[in-house]
Nucleic acid binder design. Structure first.
Lengths: 186, 186
DNA sequence: AAGTTTGTTAAATTTTTTTTTAACGTATTG
DNA sequence: CAATACGTTAAAAAAAAATTTAACAAACTT
């Protein structure tokens, strides 16, 4: 085993290990491994990056970088920064994982809540018609009632999810679950 | 507008609306719309389903149902149930969204925590070599130190995420955020 | 104003994923 | 034990997504 690795190479190895792990776990955020890799790369840059730098670093085309960076902006993991005296757009990775976590999940969960609660409202109004109608077969009514009840129960979950989002956005959650700066004894 | 829609058709419409919303929002759970649609379909069945029923309901092939159902099992949204006197396997949708939420996110988040913390441990050990080595360029050392510090900070997030998972698995979170059976005044 | 630079969109290509048909192995039934 | 039913894997086909090259439009330079 070579003991005389160049320090620059060691740093490079260290970064690659973390970049790979990031790229692998970012599927939860709905991005492909190459987009995850782009984020990981930016994560280790200590200055804003241009599209050309990204292209050179990852060996991919510029339009590819352009669309990837936009996807990363969509999930709030990358921000465009303005730098005086440069024509090129510059982008910086969001390095505070708390912020990306909050932005991403609150957005996704609220979308889940809103879309589903809307659908449930429409569905329930239709089911109510069946339930309240005269001369409808009792078995059919029963079916509508069961569905209605099931939807009512699911609303409990969506309301809870909404509260979870609220507690994250207001940062109340951090009173319940504090951010521990120090490592707990292993 | 036709006032005399068949009650059965109304129920069908109600279900379809919800199934569509479910299929649309299930992308967060990393499944395709057709798998989401399968889950939605099962969600409105009040008895376990066989692969053949699924195939007929969705108009897709049986192998497709087989693999889709497995994916749904992976994310704990569908369970195989045993029914006496039937050769066919039967599957039932998990209808308690709290349970699927808990299982899914705890699993994904723990994977994120473990993979990344492992990578960070390896990376930090490499960076430490650079930092502690003799006769290494000061600028290179500085770089290693910055990376090291950044990784240290990210560990705060992963530890927090681990605590979040813990609080969900122990259900402590429900003391902080109770499940409200009743609707709050709109 | 002509010529560059920059980022994006469009079209074409490649790769990956999804879906289907076909084939197979195991178990069950008569 | 032959015949059938069931679920899965394998191979093929179809569809979708990612990536690239080409083309374009806006902004900047000179």
């Amino acid at each position: 085993m070579p003991e005389d690795i160049q320090p620059e190479a060691l740093i490079e190895q260290a970064r690659d290990i973390v970049i790979n792990a990031i790229a692998e776990t970012m599927d939860l955020y709905g991005v492909t491994p190459s987009i995850g890799r782009l984020y990981g790369t930016m994560y280790f840059k200590h200055h804003p990056m241009t599209l050309d730098e990204m292209k050179d670093d990852l060996g991919m085309s510029k339009p590819s970088m352009s669309t990837s960076v936009r996807k990363l902006q969509d999930i709030h993991m990358v921000q465009k920064v303005w730098q005086k005296g440069s024509r090129k757009d510059k982008y910086m990775a969001e390095k505070n994982f708390f912020r990306s976590f909050i932005k991403f999940f609150c957005k996704k969960w609220m979308r889940e809540v809103n879309l589903n609660l809307e659908a449930i409202a429409m569905a329930e109004s239709k089911l109510k018609k069946v339930i309240e109608a005269q001369d409808v077969d009792e078995d059919v009514k029963k079916e509508a009632e069961i569905d209605f009840q099931q939807l009512e129960e699911s609303k409990v979950y969506y309301r809870w999810l909404k509260q979870l989002v609220r507690s994250i956005e207001t940062e109340e959650i951090f009173e319940f679950l504090p951010v521990n700066q120090e490592e707990i004894e292993p």
